[in-house]
Structures are given as structure tokens and as C-alpha cells.
Design a protein around this nucleic acid. Structure first.
Lengths: 347, 347
DNA sequence: TTGAAAGCGCTAACAG
DNA sequence: CTGTTAGCGCTTTCAA
């Protein structure tokens, strides 16, 4: 049933070398021979065996993406960029979803298996040193997205600058008593956003007490969740309600958390943006529906670029690690109170 | 650098056969030999070469998922089910995203390539007969989700019954002049939902004119899009506004379309559910935010089950094609007007 | 129990 | 231009 180049060779009355040449468009085949072979190829409905090919030419044409499922829309959009560009480049994409730290190591290990993939993309996940070494040892190209290691190509969003801009926007609206609802500082982006928040306050000589940076109670999803947002809001509530120097604005580390905040605020009768102005981060699809003012990240582009970097590296394995950064853009909607045309109806 | 079983064999002073046996836990190796070999394996940090292994034992431990990006959340949730279960089963997952019909064939062809994957899952996409034959010829397991072909395992949602239930709900609320906003009948689920709509009307002896089933103008995404929903609403508007026998309720083929309808309705000052009651299909994440009454599909479960079926088939390649169906559940929210506690504020 | 050797299906270098 | 041959790295007989 399965037809191989041996069958083709026999049928066409040539050697397997010639068959291979025809299949790979090598120039050194006479036109008539090529025609004859190709007709046999078609007649026998020949299909090359993927792995035999890969074994022989040491190339897999496959890449792996290791993606945490933090917040659905965010990574889904990144994934679309990855997927589209991979298809364009003729690369197969192996998808590894990471739901807990143990899985991360497993995926890394699987990706490192010799001959499995030509390159790997790691998203928003810290690369353990042990694995960094192994990638270098094996010479396996690795692109880091939304995380960093000097030894590898990396693409990231300037979280710190973004957080500065977000906070700056709040300051520019006249707020002087700010809080931040953060994700867990285990996550690099979360930490950077805290730093940016602090930077902006410092630049404006605004001081806040330590408890005005609110961390998530649970580690789940590193705090990038709606529930974490709700809980944080409850911690924030007393500060909003106190008569002396009440908090009037909050920078929230992500849109998902902000959605939790908006919901909780409605439950507690706190008006957003009147009682509390909110700016968050990501611009996921839902952000539009909640009319969130937020820092937009180019999710699709980041995914697409990850593939491009990988392809570049295939062409030139030894060049220096590249660093690309995106600057998030402020998208003004209703939750910050800047564009107050109509009352902000929580959906 | 790259260490092979030949290196191991030399280092351990045995033949490659013995090394292979140790690695694969064959019984026929003496304990001391095995210990010696395994210690060498560890010392040299040996990693088997994925494709060499696959070539030799004719198994890839990889499956492919061919997924159209109809509506982001819907397939993302399905994909999560696929991904989780695949990881559990130790299978690598190759993801093929389909954005237009031409890509479908390409993905099918790629999946069919000999030796590439052990099985394929096809989601919501019609399987061309030519490919059905090739899958059978090659003996490559194929699981169909949300689509059907008697020759293959299939998992689907009872779209027709679901549409009946949705329409029945509208009828039970007293509506007698109904319309349907459909997706393109090229898509199997879309056609089934039209049939279900008709069934329910027939059962209740309600008659409608042909133009009360509104088809999308564009083929993009087979009409499963917000824009298609908006356009359809415009076509529907005159029927809602006419004085004689106005349309008071609509069954919409999907949540994304319903969101377009809700938005357009707001623009035109049509109140939902007062002027127009709406029931849709899918229960994607956004459906909650729009308070859509809808028919819930078990997306995650469908994805997970697809992998399970594939694994079953690996164990028993020749058994008859299985058919599993899910019955969608009515989720009552505000867009149908059944639970009218407070006015329905469009978000 | 173990080593040698024959594939798995293909590519590429090497003679002719 | 073409056929032959030697790998690619592993699994699996088949003798020993």
C-alpha cells in the first residue's frame, strides 16, 4: 500500500537517486526522465514519509510554542499571530499549553528532545537556568516572548514604561491618591508594572503607603484573574471610602483583574470612574465591552514576530541575540473618567 | 556533541541492540549490564532522537487538530480541552488553523503525509469526499467534531434539537411572529439550526414567510461574525417595525452574531427583549456579558473527547465508527425576556 | 543474554 | 545526467 521511492524507481526504471532528485527539483535530471518519474509519482499517488525525510536531512520544519493559559483572550490572540505566520512559513506548530509549573519543565524537556523541533518559542514564562544551558548546548533556537534572557532572542512589551504611562494618565487627570492592584511579583511583567507605577509616582512626587499596592491573595494564574481583581477591590474599598485622603484612582495590572474590580465595584455601590478611576493593561477583547481605559499590547504582532525571529535564526544561527520591544499604547475609554460624555454604565 | 546509541554502546562496551533493550525496558538484559548501560546513559545525558525512533517503530505520538477560527472563544475553549487531554495522553499536538477554504485542503494534505501524525481531528469543517477516501486508504484515524461522515468517529452537538429548543423557548414566551438570523448554510451546523428552527415552528403550527430566515450577505466566516449579525439586523428591522404582524422574536444562529444584533438594535433604538426577544447559540464567554439567552455547547468537553476517541482508535483500529452527541442546554439570561427583573441595559 | 545486521524511507556524496 | 552507496539513529529479528 505505502509507496516509497523504491517503488517509484522500479516503476520508472531509474535509480532512487534520480527519483529523489526529481522530487526535490534538483537541476541534474533530464527533462524526459523527470517527466517520466513525475508521472509515476502521480500515478502511484506517492507521498514522502515525513520522518524519513527529517531523519535524512536533519530538519523538522516544526516549531514548538509553549504557552501559559493565563487569560484566554490574551494568549489566544498571540497564538493566532503565531499560527498564521507559521503557516505562511510552511512550519508545523506544536502547541504546548502550560497550566502549572511542573508542566513547564515537561514541555521544555519535550521541546529539547533531539530532532523534535527546529525551534521553540516560550511565552511569558521564566526560563530556568538549567534549561537555558541546555538550549545553548544543543544549539536549539529559542525565542522568548514577554520574558527575558540575554542569551536568546527576545520580544517583549515595555511593561515598565507602559505602567508609567498608565499611571501618568491618572495623574494627569488630577488624581493624587493612587493605588495599584497588582498581579503576583513572581511574574516578570507583574513586577515591571509595579516598578513603572512607582516610577510615575516618584516623578510626580506623589507618595503612597505600602498598603496601596495590593497583591493577590492566591497564586492561581499569578493573580491575573477576575477573582483576584474582586478580592483586591475588597482590600481597596476601605481606602476608597475613608474620609481622609481617600484613594480616587487605581492602576490595575491587567484587564481581567480590572473586570473583577468593575464587577465588585458595582456590587459595593462604588462608581467607576466617579469614585474610582481605573486604568488597566492588555486591551483584551473584553476590555472594549467593559469600556476599560487600558494599555494596549500588540498581541497578534508579538506572536507573528516570534515566528519571524525563529525563521531568521534558522537562516543565521550564530548571530547575536536580538531584542525587540513594543511600547504599549494608551487606549482611553470610560473607566478612567477622561472622556466623560455619558455616565459609565457597568455592563 | 549529539550522543547516539552507538556512543552509549561503545562507552558501555556492549552492542547497540543491548542499549536499545535497556532503554526500552526489554526483559532480556542482565541486571548488571542494564545498570552499567543506564549509568552511561545518564552520564552522557543521552536523549533519543525523536524522528529516528519514529521512523523505526512507525509511531509518531503526535496528533493534528484542524481548527477553523470561526469565533475566537468558541474554538479556544475547544482547543483547551484538546490540549489538556493530549498532554495527559502524552501526545504532541500539531495545530492547524484554517482561515479560508484553500487552507483547509492544505492542512488535510499535510496531516495525511505519511508518518507525520498518528491521528487527526477535524473541527466544524466539511470533509471533502476525496479526503475521506484518502484517510481510509491510509488507515489514518480521523475524528470529526461538529461535522459528520459515517465512515469516521464523530462527535457533535445536536444542533437541530438545540435550535428546536431555542425556538420552542421563544414560542413558550408567547411569540408567534418569529425570524431567524442564520449563518451560511454551507456550514453544517448552520443548516441544522435552520432545520431545527423550522421544526419547532411546524410543531407549533406557526407559519413564517421565507424572508424571515435571514442569510448572511458575505461568506466571511460563514456568517458567524458580529458584522453579519449587524447586517442581518438591518434586514430584520422593517419586519420588526411594521405595524401588521411585526416580528417580535429572533433565533440567532450564534452568540457572535447575536452580539452584532444587540449592538445594532441599540443603534436603531430597538429594545431587546421588549421589541425583539433574542435567543442564540454557543454560550461563548461574551454571552454572559451581553446577558444572552443561548444554547450552551460543552466546548471543552468536546475537545477533550476528541482526543479520547483518537486514543481509543489507536488501541483498536478496526472497530466501527462511533458517534457521540451532546445536547445543548438552554441558558436563560435577559435577551429573551423570560427573566425580566430589571430592564435589559445593553452593555 | 547478547552482538551483529537488516531494515525504516529518504538525502546527498560519489563515481561513472 | 544517472545509478550506487553510505549514512541519519533507532528497533527488531536472528544467530550465537
Amino acid at each position: 500500500m505505502r509507496v516509497t521511492i523504491y517503488d517509484l524507481a522500479r516503476e520508472a526504471g531509474v535509480g532512487i537517486g534520480t527519483v529523489s532528485r526529481c522530487l526535490n527539483n534538483h537541476p541534474n535530471v533530464s527533462a524526459p526522465t523527470r517527466a517520466r518519474v513525475l508521472s509515476v509519482v502521480r500515478r502511484l499517488n506517492y507521498q514522502p514519509h515525513a520522518y524519513a525525510q527529517r531523519l535524512a536531512n536533519r530538519k523538522t520544519n516544526t516549531v514548538a510554542a509553549i504557552i501559559p493559559y493565563f487569560t484566554s483572550s490574551f494568549f489566544f490572540q498571540v497564538l493566532q499571530g503565531v499560527q498564521d505566520r507559521a503557516a505562511e512559513a510552511g512550519l508545523d506548530l506544536i502547541l504546548y499549553g502550560v497550566n502549572d509549573p511542573a508542566q513547564k519543565e515537561l514541555c521544555l524537556r519535550k521541546s529539547l528532545q533531539r530532532g523534535k523541533v527546529d525551534g521553540v518559542m516560550l511565552f511569558s514564562l521564566k526560563l530556568p537556568v538549567a534549561y537555558a544551558e541546555r538550549f545553548q548546548q544543543m544549539g536549539l533556537p529559542l525565542v522568548l516572548v514577554d520574558t527575558f534572557d540575554a542569551a536568546f532572542d527576545s520580544i517583549y512589551v515595555e511593561n515598565r514604561e507602559g505602567a508609567q504611562a498608565a499611571t501618568g494618565h491618572l495623574l494627569s487627570l488630577g488624581h493624587r491618591s493612587l493605588a495599584m492592584i497588582s498581579a503576583h511579583p513572581d511574574s516578570d511583567p507583574a513586577r515591571d508594572r509595579i516598578d513603572g507605577f512607582r516610577d510615575a509616582l516618584a516623578a510626580a512626587s506623589v507618595e503612597i503607603s505600602a498598603d496601596q499596592i495590593i497583591l493577590p491573595g492566591s497564586h492561581r494564574l499569578d493573580g491575573f484573574s477576575r477573582e483576584a481583581g474582586r478580592e483586591a477591590f475588597q482590600a481597596l474599598l476601605p481606602m476608597v471610602r475613608r474620609s481622609e485622603d481617600p484613594v480616587t484612582a487605581a492602576f490595575v495590572a491587567s484587564d481581567v483583574q480590572a473586570i473583577g474590580v468593575v464587577e465588585a465595584a458595582r456590587d459595593y455601590g462604588v462608581s467607576i470612574p466617579d469614585d474610582l478611576a481605573v486604568v488597566s493593561f492588555d486591551d483584551i477583547e473584553l476590555a472594549q465591552h467593559y469600556r476599560l481605559t487600558t494599555m494596549r499590547q500588540p498581541m497578534y504582532e508579538m506572536g507573528a514576530l516570534a515566528i519571524e525571529r525563529l525563521v531568521q535564526r534558522f537562516g543565521n544561527p550564530c548571530c547575536e541575540a536580538s531584542v525587540t520591544s513594543f511600547r504599549p499604547q494608551l487606549v482611553i475609554r470610560d473607566s478612567c473618567g477622561a472622556a466623560r460624555k455619558e455616565p459609565y454604565a457597568t455592563p
